[in-house]
Design a protein around this nucleic acid. Structure first.
Lengths: 196, 196
DNA sequence: GTCTATATCCGGATAGAC
DNA sequence: GTCTATCCGGATATAGAC
């Protein structure tokens, strides 16, 4: 209605918020419609089916991540890049009971349309490839310390981030920050200085 | 119908399976009814409302965990106890795209009845209390090595387990085993023997 | 591009017979 | 304790006016 108002974008923004708060199957076109002050049918004009909306959301996450990696590529220190990645999750955490896209999509994996599953797999893969690269770079330059296979460490970190955001919902936001602190402690700890 | 058939138990078993595969909001009384070859209404006889069923499920998880901790308390080695805990998750993983109760409940936390949330919080707390105790015992006896606060490490481990089960769904079961391997490697690694 | 109105379906739930 | 029948509400979705 108003000049410059991009309804499609606003729908995506509202849907993204709802997705990370309630999950895919627990949000409806009604929720979005009420929030934007429009009608149900208006959303169907932009996204004929709910799965179209779902796919658009995941594609947007993927694009955003690509743009983001391009940006942080400037940072020469791998720990700084990894820390910047952590910040994404911090933003979810402080927003209050928001979980990460991967967390939503994997939890509901068996209950989302196949097209969405496909996009979700791609998103996952892209994130982990970046994580592995970053860990390898960090180990090579000495800004990150860890033992074992970087691919294993990457999944461990990704899983811990995803899991701790969810746990924070039930057990308090501190839980998330404690995990973040622990991850950092272990990655920055040179194995020379030992146990307490 | 048949002698000794306990419908209530069978409903719980089917529901538990569905919960960990599809999530709370994505399974219906229909799913259960079809699976057990009974009618919708029969389930309502045992569990008047869906939330009654949900609460019963979480209470059962809690009871099972209490029984389990009593059992493994025999093991004098903390690493053995922790490893036994890991086995619970391995069973979920090899069952194929099953995630852990905490993972389901925390992902859908904003979309489940308040009574379930309450039970879920208790379950979480009990698991983490046990994890912390176990880590402390392991550190004291030297069977577990880690740096930092045991409460932080406990959440890190719990989050990694929960997250990796979910990630395994999208990226393959190996991911879960890689995390398990990495966790073990780090916990059993004496900081004397250093990087490769 | 957004509306009203409506269609369809499904999940949760109840009443009452057996 | 399980059935049949039925109700209700919510969610996805479409048709057609504006």
């Amino acid at each position: 209605m108003r000049l410059g108002r991009d309804t499609r974008e606003e729908i995506l923004n509202a849907a993204e918020e709802l997705l990370q708060r309630r999950g895919y199957n627990a949000f409806s076109y009604q929720h979005i419609a009420v929030q934007l002050g429009i009608r149900n049918a208006a959303i169907h004009y932009h996204f004929p089916g709910k799965e179209d909306l779902g796919v658009a959301l995941v594609k947007r996450y993927r694009q955003r991540f690509r743009d983001w990696t391009d940006e942080v590529a400037r940072l020469s220190n791998a720990w700084d890049r990894l820390n910047a990645h952590f910040q994404t999750y911090v933003e979810y955490a402080v927003a209050g009971s928001k979980i990460c896209p991967g967390g939503v999509l994997s939890s509901e994996f068996e209950a989302i349309p196949e097209v969405m599953r496909h996009e979700a797999r791609l998103l996952m893969r892209e994130i982990f490839e970046w994580l592995i690269e970053t860990l390898d770079a960090g180990r090579a330059q000495g800004s990150l310390n860890f033992i074992g296979d970087s691919r294993h460490k990457a999944v461990e970190i990704g899983a811990a981030l995803q899991g701790s955001l969810q746990i924070a919902r039930m057990a308090g936001e501190e839980r998330f920050h404690q995990v973040l602190q622990q991850l950092a402690l272990e990655l920055r700890h040179s194995s020379a200085d030992s146990l307490p």
